Amino acid sequence: LVDGDLVVWDTLAIAEYLAEQFPELHLWPRGVPERARARSVCAEMHSSFAALRGACPMNIEARLPQVGALALRDQPGVRADLQRLTGMWQQLLAEHGGPLLFGRFSIADAFFAPTVMRIRTYELPVPPEVAGYIESLCAAPGVKAWIDGALAEHDFRAFEEPYRLGRD
């Protein structure tokens, strides 16, 4: 993020900076316990889920269900990451009534948007309430604009996508 002479390069620091610059948007949940929880799940996203990230590179426009099935079959870390994510999301959705993690769009949802794209791309199996969360997040205006922008790029690079021979 570049704001005048200020450059902020870490995702979590960018989120904090934006929340401070635009307090009226309530980018973090309003309650102290909910904000603490949201910050915790963002920190976990920021530092975890390496197996899923490594096995399933993010690509919004691809559909790679066979790769997802192999990753789940062959990589216990991917299974563990998916189980942790879906369990966390189920708990937050139940606690806050959905359709998003803290009831309404927050920084936590923005942090998980790339992971949601991985789940969609690789068609990883999720419980129905998590599938509903994924659809709600993808329909959120900012996320939808991000998806639409990515789809408009048509930026296929074979060396970055070892599982695809060409465009789907």
Rank of each mutant, 00 (worst) to 15 (best):
F105K: 03
P114W: 08
V143A: 11
A140W: 10
L100E: 03
M88S: 11
L137R: 06
Q90D: 07
R104H: 13
D148Y: 00
P141Y: 05
F156R: 07
E123D: 11
G97Y: 09
P141E: 12
A152C: 02
G132I: 01
A131P: 01
C138E: 15
P99V: 02
R120D: 11
P125R: 06
G87I: 02
I119P: 11
A94W: 06
L137G: 08
G142I: 01
P141T: 06
L124T: 07
P125G: 09
A140H: 13
Q91E: 14
K144T: 08
L93V: 03
I147Y: 08
D155P: 00
G103W: 05
L124E: 11
T86M: 05
L93K: 05
F156A: 02
A110L: 14
I107F: 11
F159H: 13
A131K: 04
R120N: 10
F159L: 07
G103K: 09
V130H: 01
R120V: 14
M117F: 13
Q91Y: 05
K144F: 11
L151Q: 12
A113K: 08
F111A: 13
D109T: 03
R104N: 09
A94M: 06
L93C: 05
A140G: 00
W146Q: 10
V143M: 13
D109E: 04
E153A: 15
L151E: 13
I119E: 10
S136H: 12
L100N: 03
P114N: 11
P99I: 04
D148C: 00
D109G: 06
A139K: 08
G97S: 08
L101W: 07
F159V: 05
Q90W: 00
A140M: 11
H154A: 10
E123W: 00
G97D: 07
R118L: 10
A94G: 13
G149T: 10
V116M: 12
A150W: 10
A110D: 02
A145I: 00
F112A: 03
V116G: 09
F156I: 02
Y133W: 14
F156N: 01
C138N: 14
F105R: 09
L124H: 09
L101Q: 10
A140C: 13
G87P: 07
A145V: 00
G132M: 04
F105M: 14
Y133N: 10
T86N: 03
D148I: 01
L93F: 05
P125C: 06
F111V: 00
